[in-house]
Write a protein that binds this DNA or RNA. Structure first.
Lengths: 265, 265
DNA sequence: GCGATACCTG
DNA sequence: CAGGTATCGC
């Protein structure tokens, strides 16, 4: 058995009290964080150690982005891609080294948000997002180990992944072009979308609610931007999946909530 | 009986919990704040009303400076000087209107800090500070009502007003030029320094400790920058004076602590 | 060190 | 709306 969590934390230093509460309450074996917004030397290692999480792979950066994978179980850093070679810290991969975990690979990814305008020509950030996915797709083609890829993909692919499909068709994160690009990434390896394996379409499933609405619960204008995808041999072993929506109501919340998947290894 | 407090609060909005605690514990009739760092429409009137302080004279400004006088007892705004006509909100005067208070005037002042270099020629801010005091001196010459002038004067005039006299002789706030200029202001009206009436020189008396020292208590590098001065007829009626040093140890403290004087009217 | 501001990003 | 950055002022 191994449980893996993913959470876009929007500053790990500011949010460490929430992270501690989550780890105390849910105790996943592995926690993958995105948008840690700090450099490696600023990462709160000691706070994690005090909670029993003593294994780390941190890919940090000053001010923006940054990902980290922390665990109660042994791991080794397996890869650290900079697919666009632009110095942005958007990926870290680990291998769980305990034999019980059968060499499971966990790829922690933070896909670029893509700016406001869904047009490659007039918005370079949108182009960067698509390019990032394309480079990840070429990489995924060669994945040959039991792999879980997860993180903030910044795309809500299904109609049921957003609070209003029609209204969001021209909003970055839900445009047909992004959805198709993400689909090609999925097909490149035959990933299984674990979220939708366990909470099937068209059931409501969101992982992010904007800070800009006064009360996120009132109109429930959420999107499913965070994902956990498994390679075929691993997908069959996922036995449970949880979306911790309550975290969105905690003090000083992240705009994302954590996802957790359990595997029977 | 009337008790009057003065406190450089360094952002009244951020510090409102401390202000509330102070008012609950000490309950002065009048509280004069400096460095409120907000505009009038941003002032937390309701929080004060909830504490029983329903009378206000607020002279605010965006981002910097700003003074406010709040009271449990009736007052009217008496004056609002901009002595240097530069738009900086550094003064508000009130008259206590209850007959029991005998028309007492309270002039709430925030003197410019004066920058780093104690030289009019190379540091305009130092010149501005001296000029401010000179203009206040000309004004004080004509004061003809029982007046309490108080606030952050940004000068520690006596040797015992600083943690190390010799070391601070060339540090803005304790230079001979500032001390002489402040002395001329004192003589222009014959003000009584109530702080030193009640806690006589050379007794230790500080009201400010820099944020920059790790633990303000360890080396106790304080200065007496805040003052309460009374015109002759009023000075005779001051019966007690307190420096609330403990506030410097509260959560998220101001770098100044409040002073309180009680008058037998 | 710790307020404020403005700007950038999500 | 809420993070980060930077600079300014005390």
């Amino acid at each position: 058995m191994v449980s893996v969590a993913s959470w876009n934390i929007n500053s790990v230093r500011l949010r460490m009290p929430s992270v501690a509460r989550f780890l105390e309450e849910q105790a996943p074996d592995v926690l993958c964080l995105q948008e840690i917004k700090c450099q490696e030397h600023q990462f709160p290692y000691d706070a994690f150690r005090a909670l029993g999480y003593e294994h780390f792979a941190v890919h940090g950066q000053k001010g923006y982005h940054g990902v980290a994978t922390v665990a109660k179980v042994p791991l080794r850093e397996f890869s650290r891609h900079d697919w666009q070679a632009n110095g942005e810290a958007r990926h870290v991969g680990v291998e769980l080294t305990d034999p019980a975990h059968q060499g499971m690979i966990i790829e922690n990814v933070y896909v670029p948000a893509g700016g406001d305008e869904p047009d490659r020509e007039i918005n370079a950030k949108f182009g960067q997002k698509l390019d990032f996915l394309e480079r990840m797709t070429r990489w995924a083609d060669a994945v040959d180990r039991p792999t879980l890829i997860l993180g903030d993909f910044n795309i809500a692919p299904l109609e049921s992944d957003v609070w209003n499909h029609k209204q969001l068709l021209k909003v970055v994160s839900h445009t047909p072009l992004e959805v198709e690009t993400l689909k090609r990434f999925m097909d490149a390896h035959g990933w299984t979308d674990l979220g939708r394996k366990h909470i099937p379409d068209p059931e409501r499933y969101f992982s992010w609610w904007s800070y800009r609405s006064r009360d996120w619960r009132v109109n429930d204008r959420g999107r499913r931007l965070d994902h956990m995808w498994a390679s075929p041999e691993l997908a069959a072993k996922s036995i449970a999946h949880h979306v911790h929506e309550d975290c969105r109501s905690w003090e000083k919340p992240s705009d994302h909530v954590p996802l957790v998947t359990e595997f029977a290894l």
